[in-house]
Design a protein around this nucleic acid. Structure first.
Lengths: 157, 157
DNA sequence: TCTGAAACAGTTGCAAG
DNA sequence: CTTGCAACTGTTTCAGA
């Protein structure tokens, strides 16, 4: 799961296709990259085993699920020391509505992405779940009006 | 692709599994939700056709690909009118290294997520690609030190 | 490392309960 | 919905180049 892997042009093609269409059959993938099925499959397995491909996920439509509110929240901790950070991380991991949490440079310490049903539900998450974390000093919310781009595909060097 | 779909407890189980492990076989999925394969498959197809499941993606390991720098950038446009927004969106969509772009409330107008090989490469993207967009008035970068959580799974109401 | 073919596993559709 | 069973499609292995 942590092999140093030489990624050639063919691997790059495979990765770019699988980032966008993970459900492609090996037969079709092999055609798209001009290779026969056997070595194609072998390359995919190698990329999975080396950890380059971490996992596969279904992308759901938030609107159709009734999840109308997405926000980013800048979080500042009261004390930015090791113990406080670890405690904050532990508590954030337990909140399902927090779908992302990044430790960042700059005046805020963390950036969260939160998904909620509606504004009332969002208020509930903020007041009863996130604000309950005592290590937090300050929160600043940004509501997502629309998502212009969410490519799910990283630029492979 | 836009059917209004009644999502019951069984559908919710299916969606929660597919969000996290899209490569599960229908046989295994049916066992996990205590249903036989035939109706399980039918439900998955219905969720795909109604648009609740939008797509399937492979998650890649950025570090192993040599993508060491991830940043969020607050963007302010010079004039926040329709023409400027559309032009900005068009240009942002053409930059592969910008993996996300959200229109947000608050003092900045957009929030971008950018993935780069290293700091030099990041500087190149900022100076030669993003700053070249003339509709932009101001940029403020936040470098991601570490990603604590990236669940790829939305909380289904 | 690839090709081609053979063997295998999983999916999909259908009928009956 | 379940079970059971075909037919099909796609996967996986393997000898040979």
């Amino acid at each position: 799961m942590s092999d140093s892997h030489k990624i050639d042009g063919t691997d790059r093609k495979i990765l770019n296709i699988l980032q966008k269409h993970a459900k492609i059959t090996n037969a079709q993938l092999s055609k798209d990259i001009d290779l026969s099925p056997a070595p194609t499959l072998e390359r995919v397995k190698k990329l999975e085993n080396s950890g380059v491909i971490e996992s596969y996920h279904a992308k759901l439509n938030s609107r159709l699920l009734g999840l109308g509110v997405t926000t980013f929240i800048h979080v500042k901790l009261s004390k930015h020391n090791k113990a406080n950070n670890e405690e904050f991380i532990r508590k954030i991991n337990a909140i399902d509505e927090v779908v992302e949490c990044h430790h960042i440079t700059g005046s805020s310490h963390y950036l969260l992405k939160v998904v909620a049903k509606d504004i009332e539900n969002y208020q509930h998450i903020i007041l009863d779940k996130i604000s309950e974390i005592e290590e937090i000093d300050d929160l600043q919310s940004m509501v997502v009006l629309s998502t212009i781009k969410d490519s799910k595909a990283v630029p492979i060097p």
